[in-house]
Nucleic acid binder design. Structure first.
Length: 232
DNA sequence: ACCCAGGGTCATA
DNA sequence: TATGACCATGGG
């Protein structure tokens, strides 16, 4: 593959949509909870839950930690899988307690070891871990989500069946950017995907046309396979 | 009435 | 290692 492609796509997206200043959230804790709650659900559903937690003053780790999973579950109902997610939040809080609920303390830990610790928490997989690392702890890890996988598979840089770690390695090795660029890149991929999804065709600015033969960059999974089977 | 959304775990082959 | 079932609400 051509390493320059990852940088060019980033520049194109940045020129079209501008900086996103992610993650939406005021504190590291809010970002981490949001990362858990957004698993396989639209961000809209997460906002409701975040707002509920905030209105009850529970978006503080020490205070939320006083609540049981049974008490947390109804508060995050809108995010779906709420019983499981309540347990995941508790698991995260238990781990966080070991560091006095201090994100400043977490930031001092060596990155690789910190990632391993996050992955050892039941309910936190690679994407959630990397979201927390990048957006809540300012660690340089590229976040690979379903949008990233689909977009770059559609462009032809990956097949789409690669493992998470393979795709992440590809970005780590071939994308030349700072931690702020990592931050923006993932955000821009999500913004672009939502834009395309809304238009049901190309993005509103067609910013990736250089990579797009059929003038269609990304559709949802069903539409995408339809287009690909017709094309090839 | 369907489909999917900023995943992860566990059981099975 | 690699699929499949399961978790469950809300908007299109």
């Amino acid at each position: 593959m051509k390493p320059i492609a990852l940088n060019k796509i980033y520049n194109d997206l940045l020129n079209c949509y501008g900086k996103q200043y992610w993650w939406p959230g005021d504190t590291g804790f809010e970002i981490a909870i949001g990362a858990i709650l957004t698993q396989s659900v639209s961000w809209r559903n997460v906002e409701t839950a975040i707002s509920t937690l905030k209105s009850k003053g529970l978006l503080e780790p020490e205070l939320l930690n006083l609540k049981s999973a049974e008490e947390i579950a109804p508060l995050i109902r809108s995010t779906g899988y709420y019983n499981q997610k309540a347990k995941k939040v508790k698991n995260f809080l238990n781990w966080l307690h070991g560091y006095n609920f201090s994100f400043d303390c977490l930031k001092k830990i060596e990155s690789s070891g910190l990632r391993d610790e996050l992955l050892s928490i039941n309910g936190i997989g690679p994407e959630t871990a990397d979201s927390i690392l990048l957006y809540a702890l300012s660690k340089q890890f590229f976040v690979i989500d379903a949008y990233t996988r689909r977009l770059f598979a559609r462009i032809g840089i990956i097949s789409g069946t690669e493992r998470y770690s393979e795709i992440q390695d590809l970005f780590h090795k071939n994308f030349n950017g700072t931690i702020q660029d990592y931050n923006e890149y993932h955000a821009l991929i999500v913004i672009h995907a939502k834009d395309v999804c809304k238009k049901r065709s190309i993005c509103s600015k067609c910013c990736l046309k250089d990579f797009c033969k059929a003038n269609i960059i990304y559709l949802d999974d069903s539409a995408r396979s339809e287009k690909i089977s017709k094309k090839d």
